[in-house]
Design a binder for these strands. Structure first.
Lengths: 229, 229
DNA sequence: GTCTATAGTCGGATAGAC
DNA sequence: GTCTATCCGACTATAGAC
């Protein structure tokens, strides 16, 4: 009996890695659905199909596990945003860039962000952790916050300011960028999704959100252009 | 000794009311700063300057206290929004209302909402509880959610749709209203406030947020009007 | 109406066998 | 690398004195 142990000396390190991954995956779901405090170690262990001591063993502590969860999500966001973020940086580096040369990467950045945050690769549970990150005060959340500022807020602000021919360090430039990103952010809330009668997002619904935001951004840029004349 | 008891038979009920109010006020601060789970009854009692059993005595349980906190905040929001919400309802009831007859209450509604959420009457701690309400799943939060939908989302959606001459029940009308309110919502996050280098909001900063949102709403309405021609 | 004392439960982390 | 068993501290709520 217990044949699987016949070759256990070979894959033991690998089995450890797999256990670690299983705990991490279950922890993402659990922290998202019940929150940090209510995600007791016993519950986390049960959902992962491991015994309780596996958590301190692999992650040091409950907060160590949460930190790992946050880093995994931030890495996924950064990976999905990378092409759009690099295109934005490239356009900004071009000091003589035309309006259209700047507008295209801005729209791509916003579209990709919506697609990343609402799309199937980014399950509802992840959105909840991001939402919590915005209000909770755990040190573990810094990684996620930095990721958001670097990949979204800063490029959006700079592209908008450059298109409008304004100083990108003006307070007004920051306010405008934050307001525009607020339009996307609010759709990450499950309350809003449900309020629309949507159980979850799909390609069509994501497209509708993208269309709405694009329409608003185009309008904002158009009216400011008019005001300049 | 203990002279204060000399006339205790007269004001005992009143003293009870005052104790209740003190617990409620301290609970608002505490739930906001550390969250529901981490706001232990011992901490709540200590912050209120009362002994622990006073909480189950006056509010039944910890969640009863939280429910009372939520209801107090929802009542305050409803009170501050009442004049603007009524003006919006009145304009919507006027089936032949002109564009300007609808635009003014819309702007007043948004301005008042910004003023309510970011102003001094609504301290940072309250904003945090509202933010938590959007993601947490406690039954106690329904009162606050209903208040927000009734006083803000629904009138904003209807006014925008009427101004644009569109069906207010269209999905697009909802998406537009939610996106616009998302611009305000994002400024409620302490992370955003701090990110702007602002320790807290003041009259000047609230004015800057109002100006940004107004500018965007005007642009959105203007460009849609153009598209209709 | 408010207190002290305590009951009863459950939290995270660890020691040590296998 | 994973398990069983257990520790110790902290939690909410209540009982009963004053």
């Amino acid at each position: 009996m217990n044949l699987s142990f016949g070759s256990s000396h070979r894959g033991s390190a690998q089995r450890g890695e797999e256990t670690r991954a299983r705990i991490l995956a279950a922890a993402i779901e659990t922290f998202a659905s019940v929150g940090y405090e209510a995600a007791h170690t016993r519950l986390l262990a049960e959902r992962a199909g491991v015994k309780l001591p596996a958590i301190p063993y692999y992650f040091g502590s409950k907060e160590g596990l949460f930190r790992a969860v946050i880093e995994a999500i931030a890495a996924k966001v950064a990976e999905r945003m990378a092409p759009a973020a690099e295109a934005a940086q490239a356009a900004l580096a071009d000091t003589g860039a035309s309006r259209d040369r700047l507008l295209a990467p801005l729209m791509a950045l916003l579209d990709t962000f919506i697609e990343t945050m609402l799309g199937g690769d980014f399950p509802t549970s992840w959105r909840l952790i991001v939402s919590r990150a915005e209000i909770e005060n755990l040190d573990s959340l810094d990684a996620l916050r930095d990721c958001m500022v670097r990949t979204m807020i800063d490029p959006t602000k700079s592209l908008l300011a450059r298109i409008l021919g304004q100083d990108e360090n003006d307070e007004h430039s920051w306010l405008r960028a934050i307001a525009i990103l607020g339009q996307i952010n609010i759709f990450c809330k499950p309350l809003v999704c449900r309020g629309l009668g949507w159980s979850d997002y799909n390609a069509e619904r994501i497209g509708a959100v993208q269309a709405t935001v694009r329409e608003h951004v185009v309008a904002i840029l158009a009216s400011s252009k008019e005001a300049q004349r």
